[in-house]
Design a protein around this nucleic acid. Structure first.
Lengths: 143, 143
DNA sequence: GTCCTTATTGTAACTTGTTGCAATAAGAAA
DNA sequence: TTTCTTATTGCAACAAGTTACAATAAGGAC
C-alpha cells in the first residue's frame, strides 16, 4: 500500500471521488503526524490550515478515507478511534495496571487472517484489534 | 466464567466493591437481553426500572464492570462499544457491501493469544476485535 | 438498630460525535 | 473559458459520552 498524500490523492481521483482542499489537508496532517491522531486532534490542526473547516467535515472525511482503505483506524482501549496513514500497520497491547504499551506488527495476525478467510469464505479487508493485559512487571502482583 | 447476575453480584462484593441497585439492575438488563447492548439501550431499559438513574451512572458502571471483567465490551465497525454478559465470547465478521455478518468463537483466537503472550511476556486479559471484508457472494464483484 | 467511612450517585456543564438540508465547489463537458 | 451535475461542505440542531464536585447510600463497626 502506498502512503504519500500525493499518491493517495491520485488514487482518490482515480476512484472517481473528489479531491477537496479539506480532504487533501487531512491526508497531509495524518502523514506529517507520523502516528495516530484522534478526530479532535485532526480538527485542531486542520483549523490552522483551513480556518473555515468544521467538525462534521473532519468526521465525514476520516470515515470516508477509512471506508475506502486510504487510511487506517485503530480503536483505543476506551473505544475511541484514532486514524493514521496506512504505512505498515501495527497494534497495541496495554498493561491494565501501569499502562505500559507495546506494539506488535500486523503481520503477526496474518496466520489468523488466513485461517478466518478459509473458515468463512470471506475476504478480509479491515480489522480493529486491541489487547489489554498485565505486563511482566505487574503480572506477579495479580489484579 | 460464571454468568448469572446473582453470581456476578456476589463476585462484585467479594472483590470489595459495592453492590448498588443501579449496578445490579444493569447486570440484569444485560443478562435478560441475551446479546449486545449499547450504553444508550442500557440506559433506556434502566430508566424504566429505576426512573431516577442518569447517563453518567450507566457509562461509569459499564466501564467499571468491563474493566473488572464482569462483562465484555465489543467494538462495532463504527468504533462504538457494545456490552454483554460474559458467557462464551464471540466476534463479528461483517461484509462491507451487503452487511452480512457471521460470528466466530473466541477460541479461534486462542493460538494468537498464546503466541502474543509468548512474544511479549504479557498476560492477556481483554481484547476487542472486529473484522470487515467481503462475503463470498459480494467478493466476486470487487470493491 | 445507630454511627461512620467512603464508594457511588445525581447534577450541571461540558466535550465529542452525528444528522438533515441548503449552499458551495470539484470535475466533466461544451 | 463557461455551463452543468452532483459530491462535498458549512450550518444548525441534536445525540452521545465525559468530567468535577457535592449529596447520597452501601457496608462495616459498634
Amino acid at each position: 500500500m502506498t502512503c504519500t498524500p500525493t499518491h493517495l490523492a491520485s488514487q482518490i481521483q482515480e476512484h472517481g471521488f473528489r479531491l477537496t482542499r479539506q480532504r487533501l489537508a487531512i491526508l497531509n496532517i495524518l502523514y506529517d503526524s507520523g502516528g495516530h491522531l484522534t478526530p479532535t486532534e485532526v480538527f485542531q490542526r486542520l483549523h490552522v490550515l483551513l480556518p473555515g473547516v468544521t467538525e462534521p467535515t473532519v468526521y465525514r472525511n476520516l470515515d470516508f478515507l477509512r471506508q475506502h482503505g486510504f487510511i487506517h483506524a485503530t480503536s483505543t482501549p476506551s473505544g475511541r478511534l484514532e486514524y493514521q496513514i496506512v504505512t505498515h500497520s501495527h497494534h497495541h497491547l496495554t498493561c491494565k495496571i501501569c499502562g505500559a504499551t507495546i506494539e506488535f506488527e500486523d503481520e503477526h495476525l496474518q496466520p489468523l487472517f488466513a485461517r478466518l478467510e478459509e473458515m468463512t469464505g470471506y475476504h478480509l479487508s479491515e480489522h480493529h484489534v486491541t489487547f489489554m493485559g498485565f505486563c511482566p512487571q505487574c503480572k506477579s502482583k495479580g489484579e
